[in-house]
Design a protein around this nucleic acid. Structure first.
Length: 189
DNA sequence: ATGACGATTTACT
DNA sequence: GTAAATCGTCATA
């Protein structure tokens, strides 16, 4: 939760094999609070091949595959053996927008894709930034394949709401663990 | 070995 | 608004 709020406004950078960098400001995140949290993959102490990196050291990536076609990326929040993480749900594209547009456009021409459709969702931004299984568990240090750097200081109102897509989580479904920069057009939903 | 299910997105009515 | 797409992962057996 602390990490979630701290991540808002920071810059997510993806360094491609060829050295090019894609980057965007983090504008929406969700906190997943570990074994107590019914919505978390680590609920009840569940520890599997898929969520292994969630149990690892903070500051690393937890990338998972879902719905048979989508990847999502988290920042692991805590020390080893404490499986908490923060899902990055949306970023505001800043660098490499052309490349993001190319990656995001399917059948339609890249032109027809609106700027706010590039990275305004957890699986949209992974597609735009070429994030998949290969990046699961990587250290998010500056200069690596994927990392976070401080964005410019700015006073921004932070909005809160229940998390998206966790209706199954009973009493945890309604907890306001989604955080976003109020008014930013790249926030999902 | 099998079956149910997603921390979603997109297209269509 | 509703529904299809699509398959790795995990619990059960």
């Amino acid at each position: 939760m602390t990490l979630a709020k701290a991540l808002l406004g920071q810059i997510l950078v993806r360094r491609l094999e060829d050295g090019r960098e894609l980057a965007g400001k983090i504008v929406e995140v969700e906190a997943y609070l570990g074994i107590e949290d019914r919505a978390a993959h680590s609920f009840g102490g569940r520890r599997t091949a898929r969520n292994a990196s969630m149990w690892g050291d903070g500051g690393h990536a937890y990338v998972y595959f879902t719905y048979g076609m989508h990847w999502c990326v988290n920042v692991v929040a805590n020390r080893e053996e404490v499986p908490t993480a923060c899902l990055i749900r949306a970023i505001e594209p800043l660098r490499g927008i052309k490349e993001m547009r190319r990656r995001r456009s399917g059948k339609l021409s890249p032109q027809r894709l609106r700027a706010t459709d590039l990275c305004s969702g957890p699986a949209k931004l992974t597609q735009a930034l070429a994030i998949d299984r290969k990046l699961d568990g990587v250290d998010l240090v500056e200069g690596g394949e994927l990392y976070v750097v401080r964005g410019p200081r700015s006073r921004q109102d932070i909005g809160r709401s229940p998390r998206i897509g966790v209706a199954y989580a009973k009493e945890w479904a309604g907890k306001p663990l989604r955080f976003f920069l109020e008014g930013n057009p790249h926030v999902s939903g």
